[in-house]
Design a protein around this nucleic acid. Structure first.
Lengths: 125, 125
DNA sequence: CTAAAACCTGACGTTGACGTCAGGGTCAAG
DNA sequence: CTTGACCCTGACGTCAACGTCAGGTTTTAG
């Protein structure tokens, strides 16, 4: 009830965002440089983030882990925030999805090969 | 029947291996440099490979795609060829298998997130 | 008030799997 | 015989997501 204008102050500094997301401070600055993240500045110039910043950074990590580049993620963000996509964005989304699917299949195939090796060599200690 | 000593001559040059495996000639030379591949040499110094070399290179590609390094693959090869492993090798094999499994899960999670975005934005053209 | 902890801006370093260029042999075909 | 197509050995270039160091300001704990 008392939270309409009062908690706009609930801002955190970069170190907390980094710890929250499990990445380095350097990484968070890098994301800003890549246009993935923006920050207010304190009078002395320190970055101030809303508390959701940590979750946002974890999302970046998830996308990076899936093989998306900073550029891809940057293109992805407006789609999420606006809920709207143009033709080019839809094409990108589908291409990335297909790429990830293919990669999962590749990984599964590689996993099977490794398991073969493990099984065969398990009987010959 | 006539193939006991006669087809040791069935050797191919690097370009054919590369085409066969779908990689660059440079890549094949790189694999040799990493100790993954050995080649005979013609009198003039050209590399000569047995015809299975293409399949071998495709195997490398599969492992690279799974995130193994040249070093990992190099450690893997003797396990395959000898069918024997020591403790360190078994540890590596298990570690890599677990890593790949975890990566598949990560990719699946990322895929789900992407699909969410695609589904949401599909209704808002 | 002071020292440690955290932040700032550059800017160069790292890593791996190649790409690419330089400069030069080799080999079947016409 | 010469023109391509293919091969050779270095050796420097690339790209992305940070790591790391330098040199300096700010915030916090005591």
């Amino acid at each position: 009830m008392s939270a309409t204008t009062a908690d706009a102050e609930r801002l955190v500094r970069i170190g907390e965002v980094a710890r929250d997301a499990g990445v380095s401070v350097r990484a968070v600055r890098y994301y800003e440089q890549q246009g993935l993240l923006t920050a207010e500045r304190s009078p002395s110039g320190q970055r101030l983030y809303p508390r959701e910043a940590g979750a946002r950074v974890r999302f970046f990590q998830q996308m990076y882990a899936a093989g998306l580049s900073s550029r891809n993620i940057a293109e992805l963000l407006p789609c999420i925030e606006s809920g709207h996509t143009d033709a080019e964005q839809r094409a990108m989304l589908h291409a990335e999805r297909d790429r990830i699917r293919a990669k999962i299949d590749d990984l599964q195939a590689a996993l099977d090969r490794l398991d073969e090796v493990i099984e065969v060599t398990a009987s010959h200690p």
